[in-house]
C-alpha cells in the first residue's frame, strides 16, 4: 500500500516534469543573432527566427505582396480564394474566405512565418503564436501602408532590394496617373459597396485612399468609419458626378437606377443623367479591395473612369 502510493507519486512527478520540459521546449525561441523583430499593422512586435524559408499566407493581399517582391517561392500554403498570380492557386489552401483557418493544417505546413489579416479571429493568431509560429498581421489602411508592409516583408524574407524596386515601380505608376489628371477639376464620386442600404467607403477605408489617389472626391468623406451607410438624402444633396458600383451587389448596369424602385430619385442625379456609371467586374473589384501590388491597376482604372479626357 505504501509502495503503491510512492509509485503513483513518482509517476505523477515524472509525467509533470516531462510535460513541463516539452512545454518549455515548445516555447523556447531559438536563440542567437539569427532573429529579426518587426512591427506589424496591429502594432504587435513580432520576433521571427531567420532564415524564413516556409511562409503561409492567409489573405490574398499577403500572397500578392509576397509574389510582387519576388518571395513567392517561399509560400507553402495560401487561401482558397487566392487568384493572382496563377501559381498561387496551385498551393495547398489553409484559409477560407469567411476568415476561418485550420490551425492544424497551418501547423502541418511547418511554417517559419504566417501572414494573417484582421479577418482571422485573434484566437487563431494567439494559438499559432503560442506554438512558437510567428504571425504577422497585415492590414494596409492606405497606399503608403502597402509600401511599408512590402518593405517589412522584404526585410523578413531576405528580399529587401526587390521590395524596394517594386515599391518604387508602384510610386512611379501612381505619380504618372496623377500628373495626367492634375489639370482637370475634381469629380465627385459615390462608391457603392451595397445598394440597400447604401453602404459606401468611408474616410478611413482603404478604398477611399485609392479614390483620392485617382483624383476622385468621395462624397462620403464627411461620414465616420470605414464602411458607413449613406442616406439617399445626402446623395441627393451631394449630387455626385460619377458612381462606382462594387461587384456582387446585384446591380449590373444603369437600369437599376433608371427603372428601379428609387428611379424617381436617381434619374435626376448628375451621374445617372450623364451616364457616368462604372460597375466593377470580379477582377476589378479585387484590384480595388485587395491592398497590394495590384492596387496600381485600381488607381489607373478609377482615374481613367473619372477623367477619360486625360487618357486619350
Amino acid at each position: 500500500m505504501n509502495s503503491k502510493v510512492i509509485v503513483s507519486i513518482v509517476v505523477v512527478i515524472v509525467i509533470a516534469a516531462s510535460l513541463s520540459f516539452a512545454y518549455s521546449d515548445l516555447h523556447k525561441q531559438k536563440p542567437g543573432p539569427s532573429t529579426i523583430t518587426v512591427v506589424d499593422d496591429l502594432g504587435r512586435k513580432v520576433t521571427i527566427p531567420l532564415p524564413v524559408k516556409r511562409v503561409v499566407s492567409m489573405d490574398p493581399s499577403n500572397t500578392q505582396m509576397m509574389y510582387a517582391i519576388g518571395a513567392g517561392n517561399l509560400l507553402v500554403a495560401d487561401t482558397s480564394y487566392d487568384w493572382w498570380p496563377e501559381n498561387a492557386t496551385k498551393l495547398p489552401h489553409v484559409a477560407m474566405d469567411n476568415g476561418t483557418a485550420s490551425v492544424e493544417q497551418v501547423v502541418n505546413m511547418t511554417p517559419d512565418l504566417v501572414l494573417a489579416t484582421t479577418i482571422q479571429p485573434m484566437q487563431i493568431i494567439d494559438q499559432l503564436q503560442n506554438l512558437s509560429i510567428p504571425v504577422l498581421v497585415f492590414e494596409p489602411q492606405n497606399i503608403s501602408n502597402i509600401y511599408s508592409d512590402m518593405l517589412t516583408l522584404g526585410n523578413v524574407t531576405g528580399h529587401y532590394s526587390t521590395a524596394v524596386a517594386e515599391v518604387n515601380h508602384m510610386k512611379t505608376v501612381i505619380k504618372g496617373v496623377q500628373q495626367k489628371i492634375e489639370n482637370y477639376s475634381r469629380v465627385s464620386l459615390l462608391y457603392m459597396l451595397w445598394p440597400d442600404p447604401i453602404y459606401t467607403a468611408g474616410p478611413t477605408s482603404f478604398i477611399n485612399s485609392v479614390i483620392s489617389a485617382a483624383g476622385g472626391e468621395n462624397i462620403a468623406d464627411n461620414l465616420t468609419g470605414a464602411y458607413p451607410v449613406i442616406s439617399l438624402e445626402q446623395i441627393v444633396v451631394d449630387n455626385p458626378q460619377a458612381i462606382i458600383v462594387d461587384n456582387g451587389t446585384g446591380i449590373s448596369n444603369i437600369t437599376y437606377f433608371t427603372t428601379g424602385n428609387q428611379s424617381q430619385v436617381w434619374k435626376n442625379i448628375s451621374a445617372i443623367k450623364g451616364d457616368r456609371l462604372l460597375v466593377f467586374n470580379v477582377t476589378e473589384s479585387e484590384w480595388m479591395n485587395e491592398p497590394g501590388p495590384l492596387t496600381i491597376f485600381a488607381v489607373q482604372m478609377v482615374a481613367q473612369f473619372l477623367y477619360p479626357q486625360a487618357f486619350e
Binding site: 438624402e233 441627393v236 444633396v237 424617381q264 430619385v265 435626376n268
Partner: peptide, 12 residues
C-alpha cells in the same frame, strides 16, 4: 426645388 422636394416626397 428639386433637391428639397425629392428628399421630402421620394425619400422621407
Amino acid at each position: 426645388n428639386w433637391t428639397v422636394s425629392t428628399i421630402l416626397f421620394y425619400i422621407r
